[in-house]
Amino acid sequence: MPPQYLPGSGSSADWFIQQTKMPGITLEISPYIGEKSVPLEKWEAIWRQNNKVGLYLALEASKR
């Protein structure tokens, strides 16, 4: 999907794609809460549920 320049659209992934000419993704690991920031009290639970996502992606990428 081409980069989108919209507020809150994962602009750091868009920057990465433009700078490196490589694919980039933004993982959404929080439950959808609308057009506002995730409350701080939810961060610990979200981290516990997702703290191995980066390792999993790295292991899968290393197989290619």
Rank of each mutant, 00 (worst) to 15 (best):
M1W: 08
S12F: 10
Y5T: 01
G54A: 11
W47K: 03
F16E: 00
G10A: 15
A13V: 00
G24A: 13
P23Q: 11
K21A: 09
L27Y: 12
P3R: 14
A61C: 03
S12Q: 10
E35M: 12
F16I: 02
S30D: 11
P23C: 04
F16H: 01
Y56C: 07
P39V: 08
G24H: 04
G54R: 03
G10R: 09
R48I: 06
I17C: 14
K52Y: 13
K42L: 15
V53M: 12
E41S: 13
Q19D: 06
G10I: 06
T26C: 15
I46C: 07
K21S: 03
Q49K: 10
L6K: 07
T20Y: 10
I46W: 00
N50P: 01
G8I: 05
A45F: 03
S37W: 09
I29L: 14
L55E: 13
L40E: 12
E60Y: 01
Q4W: 03
K52Q: 15
G8D: 04
P7N: 11
E44V: 05
V53N: 09
A13T: 09
E35C: 08
I25K: 01
T26R: 14
K21P: 00
R64G: 05
S37T: 09
L40C: 14
R64D: 01
Q4H: 06
L27Q: 05
S30A: 15
Q4T: 08
Y5L: 08
P2C: 04
